[in-house]
Amino acid sequence: MSKESKFLSLVLRHKPEEIGLQVDKHGWVDVDQLLRKMKKANRKLSREELVQIVEANEKKRFTLSEDGLKIRAALVA
């Protein structure tokens, strides 16, 4: 797992406050907000790189909304 993927797991699942993210009650975060907050934390990531991480992650740790505007840590069954 890449360092970007590990960081995404940290801020989407465990510590959104690490970069000042607001997560809704269903765990969703606005993708643009996530990318801005990551940039401020010196973790610059493009939307294309984010989509690639989501699609390439073997364990399917992340879910993008159908419209691609929101992301969350995948729900564990």
Rank of each mutant, 00 (worst) to 15 (best):
M1H: 13
S2F: 04
S2Y: 01
S2D: 11
E4K: 07
K6D: 15
F7A: 07
L8E: 01
L8K: 00
L8Y: 02
S9K: 00
L10S: 11
L10F: 05
V11Q: 05
V11W: 00
L12T: 06
L12N: 02
R13Q: 11
R13F: 02
H14E: 14
H14A: 13
H14T: 14
H14F: 14
H14K: 11
H14G: 11
K15W: 03
P16N: 03
E17Q: 13
E17N: 15
E18M: 12
E18L: 08
E18W: 05
I19Y: 00
L21E: 05
D24G: 01
K25I: 07
K25G: 12
H26R: 12
H26Q: 12
G27V: 06
G27R: 00
G27W: 00
W28S: 02
W28Q: 03
V29Q: 04
V29G: 05
D30Q: 02
V31W: 00
V31M: 03
V31R: 00
V31G: 01
D32M: 09
L34H: 06
L35G: 08
L35I: 07
L35R: 01
L35V: 09
R36F: 07
R36W: 01
R36E: 09
R36N: 10
K37T: 05
K37D: 13
M38C: 05
K39F: 10
K39S: 15
K39W: 02
K40S: 14
K40L: 15
A41S: 14
A41L: 10
A41P: 14
R43W: 08
K44V: 15
K44W: 05
L45T: 15
S46L: 10
S46V: 07
S46M: 05
S46F: 00
R47W: 07
R47V: 08
E48Q: 14
E49Y: 00
E49G: 08
E49A: 09
E49F: 03
E49V: 05
L50I: 09
L50M: 11
V51S: 12
V51L: 10
Q52K: 14
Q52G: 14
I53S: 02
I53A: 11
I53N: 06
V54S: 09
V54W: 01
E55W: 11
A56V: 13
A56Y: 08
N57V: 04
N57L: 00
N57F: 01
E58M: 13
E58I: 08
E58D: 15
K59N: 14
K60L: 04
R61Q: 12
F62H: 02
F62K: 04
F62S: 08
T63M: 12
T63D: 13
L64H: 06
S65L: 02
S65A: 12
S65C: 07
E66R: 03
E66L: 12
D67T: 10
D67M: 04
D67G: 03
D67Y: 07
D67N: 07
D67L: 02
G68Q: 04
G68P: 01
G68S: 09
G68T: 13
G68I: 07
K70Y: 13
K70C: 13
K70I: 07
K70E: 07
K70M: 10
I71C: 02
I71T: 06
R72Y: 05
R72C: 12
A74Q: 12
A74W: 00
A74I: 03
A74M: 01
L75D: 08
L75I: 15
V76F: 01
V76A: 09
